[in-house]
Design a binder for these strands. Sequence first.
DNA 1: AAGGACGACAACCGCTGTTCA
DNA 2: CTGAACAGCGGTTGTCGTCCT
Length: 345
Amino acid sequence: MGRPPCCDKVGVKKGPWTPEEDIILVSYIQEHGPGNWRSVPTHTGLMRCSKSCRLRWTNYLRPGIKRGNFTDHEEKMIIHLQALLGNRWAAIASYLPQRTDNDIKNYWNTHLKKKLRKLHTGHDGQSHDEFSTDNNSHQISKGQWERRLQTDIHMAKQALCEALSLDKPIDHHNHNLGESKPSITTTTCFHTSCDHQDHDHKNTTKSHQPLSYASNAENIARLLESWMKNSPKSGQTNSNPTRDLLQNPVAYQPNNNNTCTNTTYSSSSEGAQKSLSADETANLTPERATSTLCFQDESKPHNTKIEEPVQAPLTLLEKWLLDDGSAQGHEDLINMSLEDSAALF
DNA sequence: AAGGACGACAACCGCTGTTCA
DNA sequence: CTGAACAGCGGTTGTCGTCCT
């Protein structure tokens, strides 16, 4: 009955990951793709819990992750999305495909919370901080839940309508939906979202680099750099894929690798997609649809169920999601003042 | 220069919903 | 149908680096 245990707690290593472990993990995922985390520790010999492996991959090693400084644009996105969605970091992260929920959460807790508190204190001299859950949550909770309920109903209706209109032509921006393998579009997608996100931040050089696996190679190169510093000789134990990767990262771009299919790698950015419901996906703007659809995860079967709707019932968000001229809506959202977003609650 | 305070971030913990044997 | 394991998520903690006194 049931499944075999995930991992026995005895002898499981904790704490920071070493570069060696990272490389082992990446090598393994290179060959087998993400997913089936349970088998990862046994197959790799890593003394880590499968959960830890998954987290390490999703939060740090997977392709397409942008690390380091958040741009103003991203910052504004986070602030407004947090106002709309609350602390639903995964949902927020789905709007920032290159950032992980953990990253966003950390950034919020360390930077933005403070920044906003300061800003609010500066405004009227007293700190009524809607972002510290203590003060305001009681006041807003009722209305918030009512709105959420309304949205749930609305989204459910919408999903039903869409489900019933089967002959309805597929939305122009969903042209990728039927494709089983997103393939090289991953790169394109990243470019698209990059270009959009960094519209006004052209001096953020890294974000314009080709992403797909190259981005991961960037990660690996980084970790290897420190690894080499620490223990140069241990590199000899690497598996071939890793060495190949290090010597020729381009060879590990999805198209060039037989064992690692396009799907495997483009799918590995599950975090980017995971929180989007079918509805959301269906209503995405072209660029967002492209950038998210190519993150379909093979390890995570197509999610046909209706996930929880975005609990941002607000016309602005709906407009953003639904409008043909979504770019404008997007900008509206970004340009919305903090007071506006706070006023939504 | 020392050490305490603080900030940043990676990783862990615990809970919940889903999947599978 | 049941229960164990998986996967995902948000909150919290631990550790390391930097700043300040």
